[in-house]
Nucleic acid binder design. Sequence first.
RNA 1: GGCCCUAUCGUCUAACGGUUAGGACAGCAGAUUCUCAAUCUGUAAAUCCGGGUUCGAUUCCCGGUAGGGUCACCA
Length: 497
Amino acid sequence: MKNVRTRFAPSPTGFVHIGSMHNVFFAHALAKANDGDFILRIEDTDRKRYVEGAVEELYAMLDEFGLTPDEGPREGGKYAPYIQSERMKSGIYKTAAEELVKKGNAYYCFLSSNELEELKKKPEYKNKAFRSPHRNLSKSEVEARILKGEKYVIRLKVPENEIVAVDDAILGHVEWNTDDIDDQVLIKSDGFPTYHLAVVIDDHVMNISHITRAYEWLPSTPKQMLLYKYLDYDVPIFAHGSLVLDPDGGKLSKRKGNVNTRQFLVEGYLVDAIKNFLMLLGWAAPIERIHGEKEREIFSHEEFINMYKLEDRQKTNAVFDRNKLLWFNQKYISTMNPEELEIVLENWLEKYAEIENELKDFVGRDNALPAKLELVKDRAKTLLEVVEGIQFFYKARKDINWKIKQVEKFAEKLSRIGEDVLEFHKSLDENSKEWAQEEWVEGMKKIAEKHGLKTGDPFMVLRIAIVGSPFSPPLFEALKILGKDEILRRLQNANYS
RNA sequence: GGCCCUAUCGUCUAACGGUUAGGACAGCAGAUUCUCAAUCUGUAAAUCCGGGUUCGAUUCCCGGUAGGGUCACCA
């Protein structure tokens, strides 16, 4: 079998859409599952859309997700350059287009964009494949116009009433009638090739074996099939993967929530969790299933690569369910041991976290972090929640709000309960690490009885005084870590009003 | 609107002609608990509709419907 070579060919628009990430992830897996190569090629033939730093961002995300290319603008390779605007300098696209003109499969079109617009408004152009009036200009007229310096594009000369087909590795056999296909522009008036021409030539030259892309590209496939035929290239294997849809319908888009891969990292999602979530969108692990038995859904990147086959891809588009992503994230956080989580967390603080610098420093410099992480790792859904869960260790809240429903039933007794709680903690051993939970619970229960409260009530007063919130990790463990001095300080400073 | 793709619980999916249509997320209920969670247990929930083919269709074929993609000198 031919070497498997897949590629990711994005245009440098500045950020990596999570939908692209979904696609790249599969493209990379296909190569790696077959001992092949994964190539990055930048499609920047539209100069208007180029964004500074876009390639760096692409690499940042690819590296973070373990999808580092084997060949690309950074790593080089035998088919360099890997940036289309640089490839263009050799004139390969223009030469190929002119060749097509010579063979009668393409033609010069001198329509200005205004003329084109006017033309397309006419009823006879409505719902019909575009055919330029210049399609059959005589050779001498073409030469004369070019000589006069008229601007032109080169268009594909789509034949009449022929069937073009692709045997897609995921979708199967799909065919079109050429009467429905536009005379696509191949070379723009600025001399740059369009995507359709460039992608066919580059994929051919770079020996790409599988064109894996999202399903939105399917309609452009017949134009490219025609090019393969006229350019006399072997057709690679096409595989159009399902799309990731927004819960509200339509493609995932910025308007309806975050789609920037980096932003997911900023929000505290783990790379492994995101990958696990993405791999299960449009693909299911081909594992043996026993009727009624729970199935495994947690897979490592490596397992995924080892199991991945194109034939297991789903044809149906999948909806991006943020809840399930959150579930994966929580699962990954809770499965790590505190030491592993510490490493992940510190990396996050350094590279992605957008939180107060002070808090970042506190957590980053804390060498007793694992014990604290142990308390919150089973309850946090994101790294951000991890930090939020432990931030009270570092800083007492000054503006505690006591007018909340958790304590309103005994609001008038608050300060007296607070005093008792303070006295009780004063009586405990100096070394908080020596405290015994039963003894501590007993003491707190006595305070409840004394004031005619429910057992949980004094705990709540203590919790709010210490944490500043009615929600906290397990209190007793937290207190042991915080230490007696700090506990007493916070209880003394609690302003019960 | 033209062309094309798709169709199993709300969502992600399993089933590759024969299952009480399975699992997971979300939901709901219960257990547990010093809070919020987490956890555990249970529960409800689907083969889009209509025709064929077949002893038998979620599965194959046709039609409808619905959803999606795409119709640039953008990729």
